[in-house]
């Protein structure tokens, strides 16, 4: 899977957490721009994990702030096999 393919899926998964209806883009800083608290971010990451059937350890979450950061990590995991 490519990052370009993953980005729109991540944006879809962000829908229920985007309570203020912000426009989502690759560079969107998920916790800061969408005003999601720490638990909300972890809940969202669980949705991403289940959708792509990968593990995203909590240690990684703090380093993946933007949609593109997350897409890169997902792509690396999906293409690892």
């Amino acid at each position: 899977m490519t990052e370009a393919e993953i980005i729109p899926i991540i944006c879809d998964l962000l829908g229920p957490y985007n309570l203020e209806g912000k426009l989502l883009a690759a560079e969107t800083d998920i916790p800061a721009e969408l005003n999601i608290d720490s638990v909300g971010v972890l809940d969202f990451i669980m949705e991403v994990e289940d959708h792509f059937d990968i593990e995203i350890p909590m240690n990684v979450v703090s380093e993946t702030r933007t949609v593109i950061d997350l897409a890169r990590y997902v792509a690396a995991q999906k293409n690892k096999a």
């Binding site: 972890l42 990451i45 994990e49 059937d53 593990e55 350890p57 240690n59």
Partner: peptide
């Protein structure tokens, strides 16, 4: 340690995550 969070009180979810490890 590597930290993996599983769904609350959900052993099946833990099972799935352990299988991925």
């Amino acid at each position: 340690a590597k930290l993996v969070r599983f769904r609350h009180n959900d052993a099946a979810d833990l099972d799935k995550r352990m299988a991925r490890d």
